[in-house]
Simulated assay, not measured.
Amino acid sequence: MSKKVLVLAETRDGGLRNVSLESLSAAKRIVEKGEVIAVLLGSDTPQHISTLAQYGADKVYVVSNDQVNQYTSDAYTQAISQIFKDIDPDFVFMGHTAIGKDLAPRAAARLGLGLISDCIDINIEGNDVVFTRPIYAGKAFQKKKSVNNKAFATIRPNNIPVLEVDSSKTAEVIHFSVEIKNLRTIVKEVVRKAVGGVDLSEAKIVVSGGRGVKSPEGFSTLQELANVLGGAVGATRGACDAEYCDYSIQIGQTGKVVTPDLYIACGISGAIQHLAGMSNSKVVVAINKDPEAPIFQVADYGIVGDLFEVMPLLTEELKNMFVVC
């Protein structure tokens, strides 16, 4: 199918987010004779051109404008709208991240296009591009298509496999100038509460804690296991409300949605609001001293016991396994 797909290559702390590569993979699925065009916004982004090419981009638009070095709704919407009018793509893909969830509806509305959000799969069916997205907190799935095969779409991280890298592939680079004006918001400083580590929304392994962790010190135990596994730490809203951890790592209906390969739930009862944020995890391991806890109904593996006894043993055993390996 001959299509043109525009992909926003999102960066964070100077690095290219993995969901941008997944968006390229989604674009390649629906493009046969057309083009996949990546967009890099900001003065420090040209370093990612070769990576985008090797993962499927045929062209890379680079906007080296200081006004898009930090994300603001106005600046990014203006930039994407101007690039869209220059390229006239069929679809625009971006990650279902904090930026994507804010930018996609604004840009789509400005351009008079539809939006399909939080997609977990994109395929060709007949002459249509069909998008699959979860509904009812992941209990059901909905298939949608654009009536004119032209729309914006956001892609949930960790759902569409990244294409194998082709180190020989190159892309045409286009340095594009945009006019950014009448900004209502200017970012002067970025202060982060969450420090370093693996990005929770893209983590392949998540170690998450609930009220059963009992204290901020308890979350240190979770962090130790996450470090051993190369994963990230998450939490329930209850744990955040109790001030055991920061809201930036909250998972659930009012927090982040994660889809890791492995989700370890520690001291989490399994309230429906939390399950909405992690129910699509590939493998769920639950540790809880209550054998009747609802979390065991969605867990692939369950450990009934005191997490403060289980966690140190599990962490030590995994450390030994990795040393042997």
Score class of each variant (00 low, 15 high):
Leu222Asn: 06
Leu222Arg: 05
Leu222Tyr: 04
Leu222Thr: 06
Gln223Glu: 15
Gln223Gly: 08
Leu225Phe: 11
Leu225Ala: 04
Leu225Val: 09
Leu225His: 05
Ala226Lys: 04
Asn227Glu: 14
Asn227Val: 05
Asn227Pro: 00
Val228Thr: 11
Val228Trp: 12
Val228Glu: 11
Leu229Phe: 13
Leu229Pro: 03
Gly230Ile: 11
Gly231Cys: 04
Gly231Ser: 12
Ala232Phe: 09
Ala232Pro: 04
Val233Asp: 07
Gly234His: 04
Gly234Trp: 00
Gly234Lys: 06
Ala235Asn: 09
Arg237Asp: 13
Gly238Ile: 06
Gly238Ser: 15
Gly238His: 10
Ala239Phe: 01
Ala239Trp: 02
Cys240Ser: 12
Cys240Tyr: 01
Cys240Arg: 02
Cys240Ile: 10
Asp241Val: 01
Asp241Leu: 07
Asp241Met: 07
Ala242Asn: 13
Glu243Trp: 06
Cys245Gln: 02
Cys245Leu: 14
Cys245Lys: 07
Asp246His: 14
Asp246Gln: 14
Tyr247Asp: 14
Tyr247Leu: 10
Ser248Asn: 14
Ser248Glu: 15
Ile249Arg: 00
Gln250Tyr: 05
Gln250Arg: 12
Ile251Asn: 02
Gly252Arg: 02
Gly252Met: 02
Gln253Ser: 06
Gln253Ala: 11
Gln253Pro: 04
Gln253Leu: 14
Gly255Trp: 00
Lys256Tyr: 03
Val257Leu: 08
Val257Gly: 00
Val258Tyr: 05
Thr259Glu: 04
Pro260Gly: 08
Pro260His: 08
Asp261Met: 14
Asp261Glu: 15
Asp261Tyr: 11
Asp261Lys: 15
Leu262Val: 13
Tyr263Lys: 13
Ile264Leu: 07
Ala265Gly: 07
Cys266Glu: 11
Cys266Lys: 07
Cys266Tyr: 09
Cys266Trp: 09
Gly267Tyr: 04
Gly267His: 02
Ile268Leu: 12
Ile268Tyr: 01
Ile268Gln: 04
Ile268Gly: 00
Ile268Asn: 06
Ile268Arg: 08
Ser269Glu: 06
Ser269Asp: 06
Gly270Ser: 11
Gly270Ile: 09
Ala271Thr: 12
Ile272Gly: 00
Ile272Pro: 01
Ile272Met: 08
Gln273Thr: 09
Gln273His: 11
Ala276Lys: 02
Met278Gly: 02
Met278Val: 13
Met278Phe: 03
Ser279Arg: 15
Ser279Gln: 12
Ser279His: 01
Asn280Trp: 00
Ser281Phe: 09
Ser281Thr: 12
Ser281His: 05
Ser281Asp: 12
Lys282Ile: 05
Lys282Leu: 07
Lys282Ser: 11
Val283His: 15
Val284Asn: 00
Val285Asp: 07
Ala286Gly: 08
